[in-house]
């Protein structure tokens, strides 16, 4: 179900800035507060705003359920992959990139967690609105 024109347009105007903010939190999570979880919540909030304003059907066209699931599973795999990659360097979850990159695997880990958390919350809202949303 759609909400009024003002709400729809304002959410549309705010959403790109929110996504940018989430990306900032993900990438600079190691310098400023923030990190994967918070950034994921921000990503999810931007999609949820769009979903509230435009209704589930319309949002699903831009972010299909399958894609969301795909990103969720692959982000989770990515995190475990980072952990397993450490095995080649001596220990599980070792920070094997530290000599080359400041922060090492922290940023990649944060990216994985952010995608994971964001898509998880979006998925929860998708499933809920299948039951609630008319139109």
């Amino acid at each position: 179900m759609k909400m009024s024109l003002v709400v729809r347009t304002t959410t549309k105007l705010v959403a790109p800035f929110l996504v940018t903010y989430g990306a900032y939190l993900t990438i600079y999570g190691y310098e400023s507060p923030g990190g994967g979880f918070q950034a994921g919540v921000i990503f999810a909030v931007s999609v949820i705003l769009l979903m509230t304003a435009y209704g589930y059907r319309r949002t699903r066209k831009h972010f299909p359920l399958r894609t969301v699931q795909l990103v969720e599973s692959s982000a989770a795999l990515f995190i475990v992959g980072i952990a397993m990659a450490g095995l080649a360097f001596g220990a599980f979850f070792i920070n094997f990139l530290r000599p080359y990159v400041p922060g090492g695997t922290v940023m990649t880990f944060n990216i994985g967690v952010a995608l994971k958390v964001g898509t998880s919350f979006v998925l929860v809202f998708y499933i809920l609105s299948r039951w609630v949303d008319r139109d």
Binding site: M3, S4, V6, V7, T10, T11, L13, V14
Partner: peptide, 16 residues
């Protein structure tokens, strides 16, 4: 700026 953008929007939504 965000408050200025979001607050009227939410007020409008609640009023409607």
């Amino acid at each position: 700026f965000m408050i200025a953008m979001i607050n009227p929007m939410v007020s409008h939504a609640i009023a409607r």
